[in-house]
Nucleic acid binder design. Sequence first.
DNA 1: GGAACAAGATTGTAGAACAATCAACAGGCC
DNA 2: GGCCTGTTGATTGTTCTACAATCTTGTTCC
Lengths: 223, 223
Amino acid sequence: MAEDFDLNDASDATHLGASQRVYLGIMEDLEARRMVPGQRLIETDLAKRFNVGRNAVREAIQRLAVRGVIDPSRNKSPAIRCIDLKETLEILDVAAALTGLAAHAAARAFDAAQDQLALDTAMAALENVDTDSGPGHFSRARRQFYRVILSIGGNRELERLFPAIGMHIIYSQFQSPKLQQLRMTDYRAIRDAIVSGNANCAESAARNHVEHVRAIILKSEQE
Amino acid sequence: MAEDFDLNDASDATHLGASQRVYLGIMEDLEARRMVPGQRLIETDLAKRFNVGRNAVREAIQRLAVRGVIDPSRNKSPAIRCIDLKETLEILDVAAALTGLAAHAAARAFDAAQDQLALDTAMAALENVDTDSGPGHFSRARRQFYRVILSIGGNRELERLFPAIGMHIIYSQFQSPKLQQLRMTDYRAIRDAIVSGNANCAESAARNHVEHVRAIILKSEQE
DNA sequence: GGAACAAGATTGTAGAACAATCAACAGGCC
DNA sequence: GGCCTGTTGATTGTTCTACAATCTTGTTCC
């Protein structure tokens, strides 16, 4: 469960399955911009690179395809999924609905004694990252933030589905400095609403955040 | 795209990939109740049954796992996912949000000239199926109904994510006669709201439907 | 009856092998 | 020169074999 979040531990451990190693390795590459949308994935290359059999690569590719990270087509090398503006907006519609639900559930289930620490820790990690800023550090912190929210909400189906939203690709294609600023205030609002226990307020805050992202993308695209 | 809906064409065609054949075959088994939650999947058995290599089976299993249809654990045969009442309700929360979004988008984008026929056809298929009623026939018609709605809405991300909701499992575990009756009136309401073009009304109708399902499950579980 | 061991079943993994398909390039034809 | 076409190499789709690691089950011994 929540296997997708285990991006945190890198391509190191051998106790992970071979296909898992490939899967995580590619996700990490994507996050670190070592792979860009449109880039093709060659089975034999990946097999050599990760020191695994071609089978394992193919299994990883199946999972990436279901997750919408890559765009497979019969008898051709799959490529990192490219999305145009229209599809980006579609993804944001889905993200608004599910992020709203996640915040709603978290606010509803919030228990200070149990959840306050984890939430504050995740928030602090977000605040501290913008200075040193490795390329993927902020992404990791953001993922952790959402992971905590999902965990508080306690909806396992949402925990499973949420990482499948194509936000990866959006963040990998669009990266505006305004996004960085905006996010912190939005995240704080979401956290405060969750702590306050007002589910509808938390849902609004989450939806607002997604709409802010939409506005910035639309604006930056207009130029 | 929308590969998951291709359950319609069965295990026949050889033009499908081997792993695809296994994937669809298992989904079909699940729908026809030939496989029940908790049942284990043995790689070699499936390979023999579908006349494919073990690799292909493993690829199919990866996809089923990501989709939440099966519950894999290291070094053990994966089993069809079992869900308790609590998780069922969690799934319904997600279903309410995404079904609502689907109906909303469809109502917003509805164009009579282009969409009326498909919607009416899907609706008619639903009305006609309860008499002859093979076991999976209603499921097929329902899937087609949702497929049309998603297609009208035109949100590709939602089309991708929607079939990943664990409704399969719910319908496979709970099957009350009340469900059958209820659905038709609900579906008509959804269709009418979509045709009317009132997005909020359509969203409400969809959410109401999911809540009706929830109520029936809760009631049938209380006994 | 319970614990330790042995045998079989099943998964995890790598690799070889081959057909089918695709992409790119070369060569010939108009 | 430009266009069609065949060849060639690259890549995927697929099955098979092989073996280690692990789980499961049944048996034996105390």
